[in-house]
Amino acid sequence: MRETLAKDPYNIVITGVGGQGNVMASRVLSNMLVRKGFKVTIGETFGMSQRGGSVMSHIRVSSAFVWSPQIPKGGADLIVAIEPIEAIRVLAGYGNRSVKVLVNLRPIYPVGVITGEEEYPSAETIRATVTALAAEARFLAATEEAIRIGNPILGNIVMIGAVAGLGVLPIDRELFERVIRDGMPAARVEDNLRAFAIGEASVALKSPLPQGEEQNLREPNRTVLENVSKFSWKEVKR
């Protein structure tokens, strides 16, 4: 594990749709970095996120300073997208030639797509677009992995594991375990550790998506959507 930051401040955007555990992911990652002695600022936009809106957390990591809760335009070092088109939305505002992007390929359709008024871009388009604009792009089947563990919401933790796997931040599994053991009931720790390990390994392996999996990505993401409908406003706010 590295001990320093690749850049100071190191700027991370975690994005997704309300109900995907975006805020939880940013808290877990930031808490790991605070334990390592870094100054972290998280800026969040979650005004009405429970009603299907995009959610975005800006995380600024520094060895010495408190940085603004808003990353300057074009200033992201790492984009973690729990929903694919949100990766593109964030790239449009915060992308640059050296940005690294992690994308969970499982879509959550906006209302306009559900009602047939708008079209959702294909997985191929999303892949090609992100790859063309990022210095490094990784596509994960985080939700599918999380479903295999038994809870699609853990897709957010698979993505955090992938961040650790990238090796750009001084974080590892042991640190993750310490943070979640303090923050959640013991019964949930094991699944979280598995999700983290899968994410970490899938980035290291460089071929996370098994053949044929992409066809499934065009189907509505029912399991994640289930989480959206079970989701509570309180959870966002914590």
């Binding site: 009603r51 299907g52 809106g53 088109i85 939305r89 906006p110 708008e118 871009p121 604009l133």
Partner: peptide, 11 residues
């Protein structure tokens, strides 16, 4: 980039 992205309307 944003031209081909569907909006996420609140409801």
């Amino acid at each position: 980039l944003t031209e081909f992205l569907p909006k996420r309307d609140q409801t």
